[in-house]
Amino acid sequence: MLNLVRNENMKIYRRARTWVFFGLILFALLIQAAFTLRTAQGTEHRDWQQEIARETQIIEERLQNPELQMPPEQRREQELQLAVNRYHLDHEISPFAHNAWKFTKNSAAIVALITLFTIVVAGDIVAAEFGWGTIKLLLIRPASRTKILFAKYLAVLLFAFLMLIMLLGCSFLIGGALFGFAGGDQPYLSLRDTGITETTVAKNALLTFALEPVSLVMFATVAFVISAAFRSSSMAIGVSMLTMFLGQMIVGLLARFDWVQYLLFANLNLMQYFEGAPVVPTMTLPFSLGINLLYFVVLHGIGWLLFTKRDVAA
């Protein structure tokens, strides 16, 4: 089994494209660093205390104005902003100041890029063997199709996590080198339907990175299963990318229906349980994890069945 995974790794990392992927992620991080540096320079010389104080005053007035009929959602957002501003004023910490933790948290956006690359690798890993014709040499070894499929999936996950760890590590180091490593213990306030919750910047960054892999794994699974079941890279990659881009939109459009909560896409973003509100108010974190698990098992079941039972006539 270990040897099978080593083989799959060899086939992933001996391809030039894999290193292009790693390069692009580093490149995206550098662009983020450049942007962050520029905005930091832009705000350096301003008197942030005065600015924040004025903004705070405006919000307070707005909240107290009875004529302004603010919808409750907007009101809560304003209250959150107010609390955040007060915290910064009281502790004399500039909200514009950056640090390694904030930088890391922001770099989580690059996980979308990792998801994209993982989809490419996962969508290719089985189908490409059919395309190359090497599947015939692969499946006539003393290793069952189940083992080969499993080894391939493990290799995909390893690849995804390698990129994720690289992103986490590099963004923390780059952020720290540019803005310092201190400040992880600053509070991070976020709005929940239950009110304002408080955590630290560091915890929030780590939480983000702990939750992102769930959707990453699910998209990898979708691409992998299509690849194994239909033996077409372009179909696997195309369909997975399409669902990745359209999934959130579809959920948004269907949000008024209750059953949307059973769609995979409505359960991929687990940050919805820590910031903002879930798609359907009754949804909970265990519910989403359960739905993800269900899709995971059913998808793999289909992929396994079709991969192990179908004739290989390539």
């Binding site: 015939k136 499946l139 006539i140 039972k309 004739d311 290989v312 006539a313």
Partner: peptide, 8 residues
């Protein structure tokens, strides 16, 4: 292919 288990 049948001997090699590639097809059922």
């Amino acid at each position: 292919r049948m001997i090699m288990g590639l097809i059922s």
